[in-house]
């Protein structure tokens, strides 16, 4: 198996690379007092002022087409807060759409590097297809509730910010397949939790057909997590020289 991690003297980031310079730098920093007293709690105090004054990142759009079905469904939610459900659906929709692109990157990387045979490109393509199908499932669900599946909800926005680093790792030509697997595992773990939550919300709201659909998506997502994690661990163990 090809090694993806190399040890060399080229890494220049630590103080051990230039002990004399580092020591004089440390000595100077130690004997030079800070220009203002206090500690990092000063940052928290300023942050708190802004937190108290802050507006939310945005709002959930009002359903534009209250069709018969939508009205009936929303009525079933009687007394509940449909905006919470719509926000979470919007979040899952966006996540699955981006997840599809993450698999596109991983497939390209595995194909371009002739990655180790333990990773099945066909399985990655199936996962990619399932991510796209999950996206469509949520889009149809939003339509059935009269909500606009093309709108970006606050949950969608914030979760995209949270996972933006994953996309950055996957799309960097320099990152290895194991590094990419770790990044996609980050996404799959939170995706799994997201589907679990959606299934519970649907059940709680008495939307049993939806709950069934969401539980089947959750079962597929659970397979994604299990498989990606297995490849991720196997790859590291093989590279470290462990007996397979």
């Amino acid at each position: 198996m090809e090694k993806t991690i190399e040890m060399s003297t080229r890494n220049r980031t630590g103080i051990d690379m230039s002990p004399v310079d580092s020591q004089t730098m440390i000595d100077t920093a130690e004997k030079t007092p800070p220009s203002s007293s206090g500690d990092e709690s000063a940052l928290a105090a300023l942050d708190s002022t802004y937190i108290r004054e802050a507006e939310p990142v945005g709002s959930v759009p009002v359903p534009g087409t209250l069709k018969g079905l939508a009205e009936a469904t929303l009525n079933k939610l009687g007394g509940r807060n449909p905006e919470v459900f719509i926000d979470k659906l919007g979040e899952r929709l966006a996540f699955e759409r981006t997840g599809t692109r993450l698999y596109d990157y991983l497939i390209t990387k595995c194909e371009a590097t002739n990655a180790e045979s333990k990773i099945s490109i066909d399985t990655l393509k199936r996962f990619r297809r399932e991510e796209a199908q999950h996206f469509k499932l949520v889009a149809k669900t939003l339509e059935s509730l009269g909500a606009d599946p093309t709108a970006q909800t606050p949950g969608a926005d914030v979760s995209a910010v949270a996972s933006s680093g994953v996309l950055k790792v996957l799309s960097d030509p320099r990152t290895s397949v194991p590094q990419s697997l770790e990044a996609i595992l980050t996404a799959e773990l939170v995706d799994n939790a997201g589907w679990e939550l959606l299934s519970k919300l649907a059940g709680e709201m008495g939307l049993s057909d939806l709950e069934t659909d969401f539980r089947s998506a959750l079962a597929e997502e659970a397979q994604h997590v299990m498989q990606i994690r297995q490849w991720y661990e196997q790859g590291a163990l093989a590279e470290v020289g462990a007996a397979s």
């Binding site: 630590g14 580092s22 920093a29 203002s36 007293s37 990092e40 000063a42 105090a45």
Partner: peptide, 18 residues
């Protein structure tokens, strides 16, 4: 308030972060 004073309140650089 001064952002540059706030951010470095009591700050002394140390290898590997404070």
């Amino acid at each position: 308030g001064s952002p540059s004073q706030t951010v470095a309140a009591g700050y002394q650089w140390c290898p590997g972060t404070e």
